[in-house]
């Protein structure tokens, strides 16, 4: 198992190298010069070149990339060009908010999707199954930007129960977590349903029923145990998506997360900040997937046995 974990860690290196290469070169290819944008209108060419050197943007693209990578290997993601502060500090100032929203949305998604998926599977081809799938499709297809605004209008403006934005306290996470969780719940409901449908047709459940075990016990004790295993795998990618895909929600709810920061860095051509944020996202995403794989092995003895060989 330990060998497997080390192997997975080593596999992260080429992934990170590829991501840094692609992001750095794409950012450089994008039109627009941050130095030109930041310099006062009456700055001379000499002053602009001075600024370019100060920001570490002098030299050819490969030179700059290797300089960047050399510093990255020392754990230095560089200074933000627009904020003039270390990228690592800026990232970790905003990351807790993103993590909080991601976990909040996962909780919402699980609360909605697991009961709904089970209900749909146990009442296969009934009106309940149809209603569950329609609800799941609604969650998947509703634009989160639009859903967020609707929820704000209802719960903040009309009812006055919840704040419309910001990140002050527990109440402020409810609406963004529901908005982000709704789309994830749609996906998870469909997976829970199909996973349960597969499991409840298994012979061992038929045996349990034949032995006189109550239907409730068959579903919740025997079927759910096995049906939940694929959901854990999906949980990893869902969490990864929640970490990186919450830009619209962070904007609507003025949530101070990393998604908004990254988009703002890209728009302002802050190459070091954008690249740094994306590299950090990649690290967290691959770590999450690794943890999920370990958890998967923990709950499924067959996988554990496979790793042990």
């Amino acid at each position: 198992m330990i060998r497997y974990i080390i192997k997975r860690f080593l596999m992260m290196i080429p992934v990170l190298l590829a991501v840094s290469f692609v992001v750095y070169f794409l950012m450089d290819l994008a039109p627009g010069d941050i130095v030109g944008m930041m310099a006062p209108p009456d700055a001379t060419e000499v002053e602009i070149e001075m600024m370019r050197k100060e920001m570490g943007l002098d030299g050819t693209l490969p030179e700059r990339y290797f300089r960047y990578m050399k510093n990255l290997l020392k754990g230095d993601l560089g200074m933000s060009l627009s904020m003039k502060r270390p990228v690592i500090d800026i990232f970790f100032e905003r990351f807790p908010a993103t993590l909080k929203l991601a976990f909040g949305s996962i909780i919402v998604a699980m609360i909605i999707s697991i009961p709904l998926g089970i209900a749909a599977a146990t009442h296969h081809r009934s009106w309940l199954d149809g209603a569950s799938m329609v609800t799941a499709m609604l969650g998947l297809s509703m634009p989160s930007f639009w859903l967020g605004l609707l929820l704000i209008i209802l719960f903040s403006l009309k009812l006055g129960w919840l704040p419309s934005g910001g990140s002050d306290g527990f109440l402020s996470i409810i609406l963004p977590a529901i908005t982000l969780g709704a789309a994830q719940a749609g996906n998870l409901t469909r997976i829970t349903r199909s996973s349960m449908l597969e499991v409840i047709r298994q012979d061992y459940l038929r045996t349990a029923r034949a032995k006189g075990v109550s239907e409730k016990k068959v579903i919740y004790k025997h079927a759910l145990k096995n049906a939940l295993i694929p959901i854990i795998t999906i949980f990893g990618s869902t969490l990864g998506n929640a970490l990186g895909g919450a830009v619209a929600i962070e904007t609507v709810f003025s949530w101070p997360g990393v998604g908004r920061l990254t988009v703002s860095a890209i728009n302002s051509r802050d190459m070091t900040l954008a690249t740094g944020c994306i590299i950090m996202f990649t690290i967290f995403f691959t770590l999450t997937m690794l943890l999920v794989d370990i958890a998967y092995a923990y709950v499924d003895p067959r996988i554990k046995a496979q790793y042990s060989k």
């Binding site: 909080k100 976990f103 699980m110 002050d168 527990f170 854990i232 923990y298 709950v299």
Partner: peptide, 26 residues
Amino acid sequence: KVTKFLICLLLISLLITRCSGGDKDV
């Protein structure tokens, strides 16, 4: 094990939610 995993996840989430939102001077 599955239940334990889910309970752990819920606890971590609640902890993160409380830690990052509770003591800030907002």
